[in-house]
Design a protein around this nucleic acid. Structure first.
Lengths: 226, 226
DNA sequence: CGCTGTCTTGATCACTATCAAACCGAGTGG
DNA sequence: CCACTCGGTTTGATAGTGATCAAGACAGCG
């Protein structure tokens, strides 16, 4: 990763452009007050926040089309970190430009509201999952969510998709321990419902998975590109 | 945050009326496609969603100043229910008018974005709580959150505030069982850190509570009134 | 007065965490 | 080519937090 984060930020600060980051790079970091927002063009990432005691909560997996950094643009500082998990291409916006944008193209304001409301809805679902679903249900829910999202984005290659996360990431997303997450995944593999190995996820029985996780299987609504 | 005359005019056109509901009344219900949004003027409520198996997740407690129903205005249907827990006065807005409004008063679009981003931030924190905090930490976190919010709204009367929720509501917010929530509250009562009985919450040792819950004690940022 | 809803407390159970160790593939250097 | 390390996955054994079950206390209310 040639440039340091800071260099990247400096060069991109005042212009709208494109940015490519390698897997493992933090794009936005907790506590910073970033002047930029990004739209993900390709690649996958992770959004998480950390507790004083070191425990980590993964808030969401970041997919192409997602807008990241809105919080940093609106609030005093970022309250979570966004990290690339594969090589990612990002479209860079300047924070100030966003408001001009809103002023001159009010229908963009609708889109922005749509995005924020959708994100909020997702977090509500995630909260419900972590709070109310058992480990098995939660893992099923997460796999269905990821699978449907990937399907809508045409990210499924043949019968599998690239899922460059660690089991620990999923565990931290669902509030489970790594070991228990692993064992739950193993059960789905044995039952030939879904297999995730070597960074490749393939769901063979989406209906059963959705039934276990208590989710619908219909495609998510189209997303306005900002 | 001075509105121009024009903005004021637009805001008033946007506002449809006021509504008062009694404790226990559902204001918006899951599955419905509502044409209205509300701003809470006074009273407390509850926002929750329900799983197929009947389990319930409380997403947030609703305080004066909160905007509710944005999801119903943007998405196909409401994904959660909002219910009054005390008598509530609401300011009613028409959904269709919202977009005209945004068009003519772009700075309101900023406010709307701010509200949505803040709500999203809160849900992220709640998710972190349910996923990563122990029962004791979670209850402490929730009490601090409520207390700070009430303090900022001047809802604390003497040394106590009115908290018209059931222990089951808190349990469902934190993904804990009623019994365990009760016992955790009892411990805080014994240790004289916080007491919640007969619908009155009083926090005697905010610092300890905040330390246990790993939260700051500073006031939340001011909220734009829509 | 009995009924109903909420809170409270004690006993028991199980889901999931924690601990520990082995495994496996990919690098890396001797 | 082998020994070694390293990050991640897998598996088994044990422990514990919090769920579930059950019953009593208490207040409000028809």
């Amino acid at each position: 990763m040639g440039m340091s984060d800071d260099e990247v930020r400096q060069t991109q600060r005042f212009k709208v452009g494109e940015l490519t980051v390698e897997a493992g790079t933090p794009i936005l970091t907790e506590g910073a007050h970033s002047a930029q927002l990004f739209t993900v063009l390709s690649g996958l990432g992770l959004r998480y926040s950390t507790l004083e005691n070191g425990r980590r909560q993964v808030l969401s997996f970041v997919f192409p089309g997602d807008l990241i950094g809105l919080q940093g643009a609106v609030m005093a500082e970022m309250t979570h970190t966004v990290e690339a998990r594969s090589r990612m291409r990002l479209c860079v916006f300047d924070r100030a430009a966003l408001w001009n944008f809103l002023k001159h193209a009010p229908s963009r304001a609708y889109d922005l509201t749509w995005i924020a409301a959708t994100e909020e809805h997702f977090l509500g679902e995630a909260l419900t999952t972590v709070g109310q679903r058992t480990a098995e249900e939660a893992v099923a829910w997460a796999l269905v969510k990821v699978w449907k999202r990937a399907r809508a984005l045409l990210l499924i290659d043949g019968s599998a998709m690239n899922l460059p996360f660690k089991q620990q990431d999923l565990a931290d997303a669902l509030g489970l321990s790594l070991v228990h997450t692993n064992k739950t995944l193993a059960k789905f593999r044995e039952r030939q419902i879904a297999t995730w190995r070597d960074g490749q996820l393939s769901v063979t029985d989406l209906d059963t998975l959705a039934a276990i996780g208590m989710v619908g299987t219909d495609d998510p609504p189209p997303r306005p590109l900002l």
